[in-house]
């Protein structure tokens, strides 16, 4: 292995096409070890991914591809499950599970239920955390 040490190439840079999410080896701060308390909607997003995968609409590879394509700004401005639900939606539209017209109409229906729908659906779970 000694011979290889002399000719180690630098890790590919972003200018060479290294993508924003491919962070392995970059400097990083300390790891924050803490338990996460998930909101009801976040658990639903997680369950939605399991359902989509088990029904064969798309795989975790499609989820990852959409997350990566959302870019670094989304990584900094959206929460983990906000990014997931956006990536799931992207894949479902691409898979033809629903059209944007259907999605637009359904979002209007949900909006019409009012802002307290989440609390009404599960008062004890939605009450404590955000």
């Amino acid at each position: 292995m000694q011979d290889d040490d002399a000719k180690i190439l630098p890790i590919p840079t972003r200018a060479e096409g290294r993508r924003w999410h491919d962070m392995g080896g970059e400097d990083a701060g300390p790891v924050e070890l803490c338990e996460h308390d998930y909101a009801l909607w976040e658990k639903r997003v997680d369950a939605l991914m399991v359902i989509c995968s088990s029904k064969g609409h798309f795989t975790v590879d499609g989820l990852r591809r959409a997350l990566e394509d959302m870019g670094e700004e989304a990584f900094e401005t959206m929460s983990y499950y906000e990014r997931w639900v956006a990536a799931i939606n992207q894949n479902l539209v691409e898979a033809g599970v629903y059209t944007l017209e259907e999605l637009g109409r359904r979002m209007e229906e949900v909006r019409a239920r009012g802002a307290t729908y989440g609390e009404a659906a599960a008062p004890h779970e939605a009450a404590g955390d955000g």
Partner: peptide, 19 residues
Amino acid sequence: ARWMPPGHVRTPAYLRGRV
């Protein structure tokens, strides 16, 4: 391989070109 295709791949960049 030290390929850099602009798409979804699972090979981390820091291992590309490594033995």
